[in-house]
């Protein structure tokens, strides 16, 4: 079970990183949410393997009880990543309203440097 979860976490991180490296903002936002799902799943597995829920009265002395602390962490983290995703989508929408596309804009300094190098190479 843990191996399967580890594989899923690895896949989520891999796809997430790939998506973040794209130009389109919406893909970056999707990549970020995949990455945070990966992190949440990793956090959940950090409490050990599955077991009975840790409610008083739900388990007897012999039962293997699951650690509730990582679950509390994950709940907090999910709320935070939900808010961040909403904010990023708002930013992407605003960017689309302003520029008509949702690409990440070129860095002005990079453009200036590229032009400088091009003119220098063009006229030796």
């Amino acid at each position: 079970m843990t191996t399967l979860v580890a594989l899923v976490v690895a896949m989520l991180y891999g796809i997430g990183v790939y998506m973040i490296l794209q130009r389109s903002l919406i893909r970056i936002v999707l990549g970020l949410s995949l990455l945070s799902h990966g992190a949440n799943l990793l956090l959940l597995t950090s409490g050990g393997s599955a077991g009975v829920a840790a409610f008083i009265g739900r388990f007897t002395g012999d039962d293997k009880v699951v650690d509730p602390v990582p679950q509390a962490f994950v709940l907090t983290a999910i709320v935070i990543s939900f808010a961040m995703t909403a904010f990023c989508l708002a930013l992407a929408y605003r960017s689309w309203r302003l520029t008509g596309n949702d690409d990440v804009a070129q860095d002005e300094e990079d453009v200036r440097l590229a032009e400088m190098i091009a003119t220098r190479n063009g006229k030796p």
Partner: peptide
């Protein structure tokens, strides 16, 4: 968050 998961 990943670091916290490793620590925990």
């Amino acid at each position: 968050l990943t670091g916290i998961a490793f620590i925990y």
